[in-house]
Design a protein around this nucleic acid. Structure first.
Lengths: 212, 212
DNA sequence: GTCTATATTGCGATAGAC
DNA sequence: GTCTATCGCAATATAGAC
């Protein structure tokens, strides 16, 4: 076959990780086999062991690569200073889109059950994913708070709630294979509903229950 | 050992499922072994195979039992008609508590990666868990809407968002082993922050961004 | 106990780089 | 043509379903 033969080392790594992603993210770490990766990829098991040392090493490298990729999308803070609603909608849409990539769905599916076996990986995945997203949104909200656009609330708490909504029931259904990913108008409507809930709440202003 | 010897059939099933829960929910379906269950339980593998037929049968029975248990807590609709904030806080607290039981954490950890292998189980888990919770909360919100306490919003959408907040970033950290379960005052504060976000939002009423 | 699956290793053959 | 990384396959060992 020679898929990995005589290639620059980085390319070879990427090819192996691509095939490994298909296998590990579909079957999970325990059920996945190196043989299955080789079947997809061609070549020899030796190549994988030479490059990654073990099945655990391969999985670790795979998850770390995907977690790193996810970060890059969330890091662009260009939106600072615009209208808070527009910023949240932008951010929420991007976050939903990232979460719905095959890689992120795969990480989410596989890391939970392996959290005890790979505690360091579990922490990395959290921090580079939901943790990073919540931190970024917190900064956005702090600036809106400084401008008086929003209540003097706990921005970190709200940010965490918002990120949780994006990774909410609909996303869970996607990960469980109960529905197709949200796209286009559907995704937009979903994100808007989350943003508007955060911004305006649901209590009618003429209700006696309205506080503050 | 004879833990399962000469017991009423229901007791024997329960004992096996208790031990199986410890093993499957800690290791995941693929990594778990029948031998490990037997080590915890004592007795013979034959007992398990006679009762559940296969490893898959045992896992299915385990998950179905836990999903059923979870339902019972969520079904009590006694709160209908009270103040919407009090109802949501009650409901959210109960839901968080249920989610944080070992069984539900275990299901959540293990079912995601096995969703393709057990599609029926995945659907059952969703519907008896988050689906059921959202449906119940939707009814609560509909009644509040009928009383004019809240805006004429899409109650199902809000209910899904709220359930997602409860099963949010903090819960994810618990499942990943990055923090201890939320209890007592911490859980109360968390639920209240989610409820108040839903009810009141974060936009200051004197902000020009306030709509409606 | 039986039998299959699979992680991991060893090694001669080989195909491309030079 | 030489050289070496990679291949292909066989072998080992262990685990685990049934």
């Amino acid at each position: 076959m020679a898929v990995a033969k005589r290639r620059p080392p980085e390319d070879r790594r990427e090819l192996i990780l691509d095939a490994a992603g298909k296998v590990f993210f579909e079957q999970g770490f325990s059920a996945a086999s190196i043989d299955a990766v080789i079947t997809r990829l061609g070549g020899s098991k030796r190549t994988i062991y030479n490059e990654f040392g073990s099945k655990e090493g391969l999985f670790t490298a795979l998850v770390e690569r995907c977690a790193d990729t996810a970060v890059s999308v969330l890091i662009k803070d260009e939106a600072q200073g615009r209208d808070v609603r527009a910023m949240m909608i932008d951010f929420g849409s991007q976050l939903l889109q990232v979460y719905q990539t095959d890689d992120l769905i795969g990480i989410f599916r596989t890391i939970l059950v392996e959290a005890e076996r790979f505690p360091r990986l579990a922490r990395t995945v959290y921090e580079k994913g939901p943790g990073r997203a919540a931190s970024h949104l917190t900064r956005v909200l702090e600036s809106a708070k400084a401008r008086g656009e929003i209540w003097p609330i706990d921005c970190a708490s709200v940010a965490n709630h918002f990120v949780s909504m994006i990774r909410g029931n609909q996303y869970l259904k996607v990960v469980l294979g109960l529905r197709a990913p949200l796209t286009g108008a559907e995704a937009n409507a979903f994100v808007k509903s989350a943003v508007d809930l955060c911004l305006y709440g649901i209590v009618a202003p003429n209700s006696p229950k309205r506080k503050k």
